[in-house]
Amino acid sequence: MSNPATLAVTAAGADAAAGMMSDPRGARPRKILSRRNIFIYGTLTVVALYYLLPLYVMVVTSLKGMPEIRVGNVFAPPLEITFEPWVKAWAKACTGLNCDGLSRGFWNSVRITVPSVIISIAIASINGYALANWRFKGANLFFTILIVGAFIPYQVMIYPVVIILRELGVYGTLTGLVIVHTIFGMPINTLLFRNYFASVPEELFKAARVDGAGFWGIYFRIMMPMSLPIFVVAMIIQVTGIWNDFLFGVVYTKPETYPMTVQLNNIVNSVQGVKEYNVNMAATIITGLVPLLVYFISGKLFVRGIAAGAVKG
């Protein structure tokens, strides 16, 4: 029994037990109302207010009548809520010769954005897939040229593009603008897709090749279903970019085909008569609504896509 080794072990055990009795080491978890938390949340609140205040002013002003606006207190909530400015902005405001409000521009923008987004994403994703997975001869050169293209300022290209569109006979039409948006969205989206597809394990691609899938088979049945998140990201970038575009819209279209942003500018910057601040505010909010909606809806999808992709397959 009195084996020295056993005794030593027992003694060590007793020491360990004594250690367990003493207070736990390390600091306790912080309280919710610690100085640190107050500082962090305080800062965040101030910054959030700073960004939300203009939106608040816009919404409040758009709901006021002109007499109330002339009082001059921009932060005051409306005494009498009126939706008249919204209706006017949408259907009656004058932009140049037409007096049918933003509705015309809205549909123009839809007809520009939808095909541009679909075509540019379709081409860019195939570009990216080919560049990442099928390393053809000259792939790097092609990619470099594409990326360099992204760094050339738009202003330089405006007039040459006008000539090209004129020669193609699509200058001033929606088709012309769709082509322009598709081309100018190409570098960034190709880069985006290329990098995403490059992160897909190469063995997956090899397995599909051994299984007899070709270029399109692998793209449609392996790569595309795996890449929902990056398609959503590209869609957000393209929808907001094309919807918010002003420069191309104003250069490459005519009054009948003006996108919404150009019309908004014409409404807000009109110099005749009284400045209708409430109508301007309403028109601005309506124009900004689409990208906002895209963020809200696809933001959720985006997060879900990332979460689904994070599970190791």
Partner: peptide, 8 residues
Amino acid sequence: FQSYALYP
């Protein structure tokens, strides 16, 4: 393959 490479 080493990483199984199953289509997820």
